[in-house]
Amino acid sequence: MNRTKSLAEMGLLIAVALVLSRIESFLPPPVPSVPGIKLGLANLPTVILLYDERRFPRPYISAITLSVSRVLLAGFMFSGLWSTIYALSGAAVSFFIMLLCKLSKKLSLIGVSIAGGTSHNLAQLAIAAFVMAEPRLLSLYPVLIISGIAAGFLVGITARLVDRILCS
């Protein structure tokens, strides 16, 4: 794919990610006693890009560009500075974990997505506990692992379906 086309497609994917993260903010929290839990729909385009070697010459660079742009744009449009910093740290940790898992070639796309969801949750929890000086928040980690597995699984299946349609 030539540069112009991949640039256009990148813009499209960022727009999709922004819409998904906006839609997600309207959904009620699935676990009312831990309202930070969410599906991570906005991560879907990132996971798809991570596996899109045929269309993007450097999928990893494209995927991290997408992830960072989405978090910054969504952060400044829909939330404040601090929420953006939390979101950015979660996105960064989950991206690098997903990249490592993918490069290790041990996990499938769904496994990579599960690793990404779980590590995102754990990173955000650790940062929240640190910033708030509330180590007791860490006791929520089992809930966040389980929700990370569930969310990662759903995002992974969806990414696989979309990837098949896009690349066939």
Binding site: K106, L107, S108, L109, I110, G111, I114, A115, T118, Y141, P142, V143, I145, I146, G148, I149, I157, R160
Partner: peptide
């Protein structure tokens, strides 16, 4: 759906940690 044995090991390890 493309879920492999290694994925299952990852999920199992995470669940043990959570439990």
């Amino acid at each position: 759906i493309g879920f492999t044995r290694n994925d299952l090991i990852l999920v199992a390890a995470l669940l043990v940690f959570a439990a």
